[in-house]
Design a protein around this nucleic acid. Structure first.
Length: 501
RNA sequence: CGCGGGGUAGAGCAGUGGUAGCUCGCCAGGCUCAUAACCUGGAGGCCGUGGGUUCAAGUCCCACCCCCGCAACCA
């Protein structure tokens, strides 16, 4: 790891029209784990998240509720801001697209640069619009009768003048960036997917809407009759959030221009990030990000999550029930990076019980008790000659952990740590330290120092993934101090949590 | 139509051509330091279907079947 450039990581920004979704929680937690990992590797790291607040949808919701749209955005945005505490995220800042001071100048600046380049132009645009939905449709959205599926009537054809971004002219350049890996798409199969799309040619995109249709947004510079459409507004958060557009922008210089940049997003918006966003940056002459890390979607008990089915999982409820690290564990370990996965309560509880309560929790407990009873103190450093076996076990786990994290395979990384838990349980049974301390006290105590060192290693390396648990374990095992801490029930078994089963 | 992903034990997945593995669950033993935890063993798979290449195929090739995504703002 020679690359010690500053590291900048972002999540997508969440749209404020709905409550935080378990999928967004997963995205935030993945980004957080990577951010924490980088900090641990002593890289200067900046982690940004935030909310996307403009558009007709939230405006409509505000109207229906008879509320002021800005006020509603403030309220909803806070629900996302609060995830920092609830999910134990380490984001360094939180950007809001309604923030006129911090966000808007960057957006205006990039618009201006693109305009100057000749990539933004006014065009006549014909679109299908349903007044019932207050939304535009494409042919594909309509049902077999050519009608709006929600209102069962033919949408109107509206002609309007919009600004368009000439994305198509960047198709080849974008395809090449993806193909050569200058823009790295993780996982690989997403790269293939988006590369094919780019090779087919990207379409120009509508960059504005008439202000009377879209009043809640950023006015187009020099043409207040038009409001910016989502792309230029929302995507720009990644740079406005670190100062782009301000007179003085040291963070932007360090982390964007001089750093390594990773966007963490969902599979649904890859094409906008790999397409529109990269096109915008190319047009404006700004450096492009290095990596786009794409996660899949979660189903709920095998079914698509939807409000109508009522099976949407609320991350906040889950955290209240099981604790934040149990939720983090499930999302990081049980969801294969990049793939779709199922979030089922049954599976969640099985994993919780097996890996966290019976595995990590119980092992911590047995080591702590034995050390406490036999006056084994923390701080022992394993010795190459005397402790070769334990040293090797730890090194193996460390090697697996490093190589997994190098490729951002988070579930594999966590699995590397947890396999050491399993091995330590086996070693315990094999070496019977509780007997050895009776027969040969000094040898027994030394063995326990090995176990203590190993569990301390686990505590330390768990930090990016389960920061709260890592903290508690360090206290419990007195890491960095001279004596053991109080015993702790890290993960109570589910019957202790719920009192049955 | 096309593009992408997937189809391996009850569930979730790993498997780079060479005796089918992991986690969970289930069953039986063992142990007692520990959160009725832990350890060991076991049952359970014609690896989507049909062809082909090969001494050898879950793994390569061809055809087909089934499931899931796929341009607007839904994580």
């Amino acid at each position: 790891m020679t690359d010690k450039k500053p590291f900048y990581i972002t999540t997508s920004i969440a749209y404020v029209n709905a409550a935080p979704h378990i999928g967004f929680a997963m995205e935030s937690i993945e980004a957080d784990a990577i951010a924490r990992w980088m900090r641990k590797k002593e890289r200067e790291t900046f982690f940004l998240t935030g909310t996307d607040e403009h558009g007709v949808k939230i405006q409509k919701t505000a109207n229906e509720l008879g509320r002021d749209v800005k006020e509603l955005c403030d309220e909803n945005s806070n629900k996302f801001r609060n995830l920092r505490a609830i999910l134990n995220l380490s984001n360094d800042d939180f950007i809001r697209t309604s923030d006129k001071e911090n966000h808007w100048p960057g957006v205006r600046k990039i618009w201006h640069l693109m305009k100057t380049k000749g990539d933004i132009e006014k065009r006549k645009y014909e679109a299908l619009y349903c007044y019932g939905c207050e939304a535009f449709f494409t042919e594909k959205d309509l049902d077999e009768n050519g009608e709006c599926p929600n209102h069962k009537r033919k949408p109107e054809v509206i002609a309007e003048e919009n600004y368009f971004f000439n994305l198509s002219r960047y198709s080849d350049e974008i395809a090449e960036l993806i193909e050569t890996g200058k823009l790295r798409i993780i996982p690989d199969f997403r790269k293939t997917e988006i590369l094919n799309l780019a090779k087919e040619g990207l379409h120009d995109v509508s960059f504005s809407r008439p202000a009377e249709k879209l009043p809640w947004g950023i006015p187009v510079p020099g043409d207040p009759s038009q409001t910016m459409y989502v792309w230029c507004d929302a995507l720009t958060n990644y740079i406005s959030g670190i100062g782009y557009g301000q007179t003085d922008d040291p963070l932007f210089q360090d982390f964007w221009e001089g750093g390594e940049v990773m966007h963490v997003i969902g599979k649904d918006i890859l094409r906008f990030h790999a397409g529109v966003w990269i096109g915008m940056l190319l047009s404006a002459g700004i450096k492009i990000p290095d990596m786009i890390f794409v996660h899949g979607f979660l189903t709920s008990d095998g079914q698509k999550m939807s409000k109508s089915l009522g099976n949407v999982v609320d991350p906040i409820d889950e955290v209240e029930t099981y604790g934040v690290d149990a939720v983090r564990y499930f999302l990081l370990r049980e969801v294969p990076v990049g793939r779709d996965a199922d979030y089922s309560k049954k599976r969640f509880e099985e994993m919780y019980q097996a890996h966290l309560a019976n595995g990590l929790g119980n092992l911590s407990s047995r080591i702590h008790t034995l050390c406490l009873r036999n006056n084994v103190a923390p701080g022992y450093v394993l010795d190459e000659e005397k402790d070769g076996e334990f040293l090797r076990l730890i090194k193996d786990a460390a090697a697996r952990l490093d190589s997994a994290m190098k490729e951002f395979v988070l579930h594999e990384a966590l699995s590397a740590i947890f396999s050491l838990v399993e091995i330590l349980d086996q070693k315990m049974t094999e070496l019977k330290p509780w007997e050895m301390v009776k027969k040969e006290p000094e040898k027994g105590a030394h063995l326990l120092r090995n176990f203590l060192a190993a569990i301390s290693w686990i505590a330390d390396h768990l930090e990016p993934f389960l920061p709260g648990t890592a903290e508690r374990m360090k206290k419990m095992f007195g890491v960095g101090t001279k004596s053991l801490g109080e015993p702790a029930m890290l993960f109570p078994r589910t019957e202790m949590l719920f009192g049955d089963k």
